[in-house]
Amino acid sequence: MSDLVQRYGVFLNVENPHDDARDALRQTVRTGMAAEQMGFRDVWVAEHHYSPFAIGSALTVLLSHIAAGTSTIRLGTGASLLALNDPLRVAEDVASLDLLSGGRIEFGVARGGPFPAQYRPSGIASAEVARERMHEALALIERLWTERDTCFEGRFFRYESVAVYPRPLQRPVPVWLASLSGQSPQIAAQHGYGLMAAPSADLDQVAERVAAQRAQRGAFPFAIARFFHCDEDGRRAMEHGIEAVRAYPRLMGVHFPPGKLPPMFAPDASNDVILANAIIGDPEQCMARAKALSARLGAHRLLLKPATHDAEKARASLALFARAAGLG
């Protein structure tokens, strides 16, 4: 399949189901490094806070370890939760990582997703406020990366005169908004940002919004993460992958507002609904699902999010897909 139509990456969430944080972190880094050896083009790492299960709170630390053990794979923040962090520090950390990695950073940003517990310690009243804060922080960071002296007057951030160093190697750093809702598509179009869809996003809605954006913008960078599990035995793959998807909302502590629950997370979601929104099966079935996405969405990056808590099984699953796709 042409790389211009669909290219493959890995989406990693640092999950700690066995209460062994050191191993969870090390296994995530190991999988990120292995992804390059398998031929994947991107590795994205999620950021979460205040959860004993999802412990990827130090996003640039994780990516720096992956960067040190790789040389070509693109390194994505999937996504940096700007509403919860000091934008000056994020600007410095990401710039340093871009320099150390040889200019391989993809800067994905998000407001914080369906995790209200993440907002409270930062004094953020709602998801809407978090979204406004995210967009304002992003505007500030982009100026900090290019201006010798920045004066900024916003609702959340105000600076008389500030400059941060070092500056990124890439000019500009690719920016992605991990949202297809609210004003994000319009802001992305205005600034030339890419758009990302989460693993749980309903494919019907995603396809509709991507088509609308292509009608307005023409070609634009788009990435979609999908829950993924591949096994030589297709039935075993489906049993394992579907079970993992069903358990995910409970383990992650997600809390969607009324009317916003993704169909695949509904308590009565059928296997067919889950499979329609995931890449699960034997290698042939997984490739068929990937090609169906390509036909429906057009050019995009497909990011595979392992639907397993067994790191060895996750890497074996990714290796099966890589071989079927002819990567490497």
Rank of each mutant, 00 (worst) to 15 (best):
L180F: 01
V254L: 05
R214C: 02
P267W: 11
V173N: 09
G234A: 13
S184M: 08
P172H: 07
P168T: 06
H191E: 07
M264I: 13
A247P: 01
F220R: 00
L203R: 13
R250M: 06
A188P: 03
D231C: 10
D233P: 08
A197K: 01
P185Q: 05
L203I: 11
P258H: 12
R217D: 14
L169P: 02
R158H: 14
F220M: 08
P174N: 08
P174G: 08
R155H: 09
Q205C: 01
G259P: 11
R209K: 15
G182D: 12
D204F: 03
V164K: 07
A219Q: 10
L177M: 12
H229R: 09
A247Q: 14
R246D: 10
V254F: 14
V164P: 07
A188G: 03
Q186Y: 09
L195H: 02
P199Q: 05
E232A: 11
A197H: 01
A211Q: 13
C230A: 14
M238Q: 15
R235L: 10
P258N: 10
Y248Q: 13
Y248E: 13
R217C: 14
P258M: 06
P199N: 02
K260R: 15
P166E: 06
F256V: 05
A219D: 15
F156D: 04
R235F: 00
R250I: 04
D231T: 06
E153Q: 14
G218D: 04
